[in-house]
Every structure is written in C-alpha cells, then in structure tokens.
Design a protein around this nucleic acid. Sequence first.
DNA 1: AAAAAAATTGAGAATTATTCTCATTTTGCT
DNA 2: AGCAAAATGAGAATAATTCTCAATTTTTTT
Lengths: 126, 126
Amino acid sequence: MNYSRQREAVYSVLRSTKDHPSADWIFGECKKIIPDIGLATVYRNLDQLVASGKAIKVPVGQDRYRYDADVSLHCHGACPVCGRVWDEHVSPSLNEALLNECKNNNSEGFSLTFFRVCGECKAKQG
Amino acid sequence: MNYSRQREAVYSVLRSTKDHPSADWIFGECKKIIPDIGLATVYRNLDQLVASGKAIKVPVGQDRYRYDADVSLHCHGACPVCGRVWDEHVSPSLNEALLNECKNNNSEGFSLTFFRVCGECKAKQG
DNA sequence: AAAAAAATTGAGAATTATTCTCATTTTGCT
DNA sequence: AGCAAAATGAGAATAATTCTCAATTTTTTT
C-alpha cells in the first residue's frame, strides 16, 4: 500500500471522532483539508483502512455502513430512521455467548448491531 | 380507501409467504398476476396496507424495509481475505441471548457477522 | 535523476431501494 | 350517465455505494 495524502486525511478525520461517522460526513471533513478530494477516494480509503485493520465497518442495513477507528470488540446500536450509531452495552450472558461462538467456530471477531428507533426520532414521530 | 385489483394482488402475494419479502420480490410476484403493474403502485399499496393495519414494515437498515412476519433473524459469516459472505448457523444459547437482548432493549432486529478466513483462502495461504 | 511499473486519484456513470410527480384511468356515489 | 375522489403506470428524483477509466502520483529499477 503506497502513501497518499488522501488516505492520511481520511484516517485522521476518522480518528478525530467517536461518532461512527458516515462516509459522506468523512468526505465533508476531508474536503476542509484537501478541497478537491473525491468521494470515491474516501470510500476506497475507508475500505483499505478496514482491510488493514485500522478501522471497522459497522453495518447499519443492507449495503449501508458507518465507520469507526475504535477496532476493539464492541457492539453497536443503530437507529433505522436517522441512521445514528452508538456503542451498545450488552448483557454479560450475550457477551459470553458471542465469545464462545467465536472460539467454537474459530472466528477472529464479529460485528453485532441492534436496530432500534432512537429517543430523538421517537419523540418526533409522537 | 377504494377497491383496486392491484391492492388485492399485493395483499394476496404478501399473505402467500412466511418470509419477509422485499417490495421488489412482491413486485415480481404481482407481475405474474397483473403483468403491467408498476413498482410505485406496489410501494404505495404496501404503505396503505401498513397504514390500515393489515401488514407490518420491518426496518432492515436506514430507509430499507421488509414486509410482514419473520424478520428471518439469522447470522452471517464473512471472510476477511476474499470478502465472501455466508449464512452462519449459531448455537441455541447464542440465539436465545440475541433474542433476549432484542426484547430487553426493544430492538426491532440485529445484524451479526462473524469474521473468519474461509477454507479456500486458508488453502491458498498454506 | 530518468524511465518504467505499480498504486492512486477525480470525475462521472452505474446500481439499488425508495419516493415523488403528473397526466390518465378507475371507482364510488348520485 | 356524470362527476369527484382515489388509484394507476411511467419515468424522474434521491441517496448511498460501487465501478470505470484516463490522468497523476508514488515507488522501484536503472
């Protein structure tokens, strides 16, 4: 993997937040650093960061993702209305079952996201 | 709400399966009954069936939905080398813990993917 | 330091699921 | 039959993501 200013920008933007940003938000931030960076470049670099273990891709629906520079094993929650993503604390028994499953099927890790309408969206709907 | 052949077709197709079909699958089935039914009509009628309490809309991500029952809550496996994805059968205890967690935190569903180098990639690496 | 090879880029087209627009057709009521 | 409200099909619009490709940048080789 060669060096590129664009990849540096994408990575530094991703590390700058704990908010599980979308590719599009990252794109907007990167433009402040490299005004004519392209959206496809952001997607490509995010995928490469994920492939090289420097970031994780949090699925928030079919073919929809959020990114996170925190690569430790943790679960997420996502709102199907606004798309917001947060860290979700799960019960000890679920945690144990997940780690057991990993051990039993020789997995290196997992990605678990729960879908639930967030407080703000629920309030808006009534 | 007035009568319409199209709505009858959408409703009968929806009742014909226990899977959680996508609007597009329903569209395909409806075309067998009314060849020139439009996709927008299917979406409109699904929304009306939901509004009148005859069907439910299951969110499967931001702005993505499936209609009717069985969210088909199943897990996936994915190879971090080649990217291949497969259905992953998990232990009953994990399944139970997942369903419990959903119930306890009021989630509508979840997405769980395990990462593991697939047989083919393992063979190539040696 | 120049040349050649490999990796990366930006722009824009393509794709997929869904919603919107609008002129035309159906339906329900009198 | 006549009229208004409801519903329709076609296609445009939107949003997130991926793909294509010629041009540029980085790395390696000389």
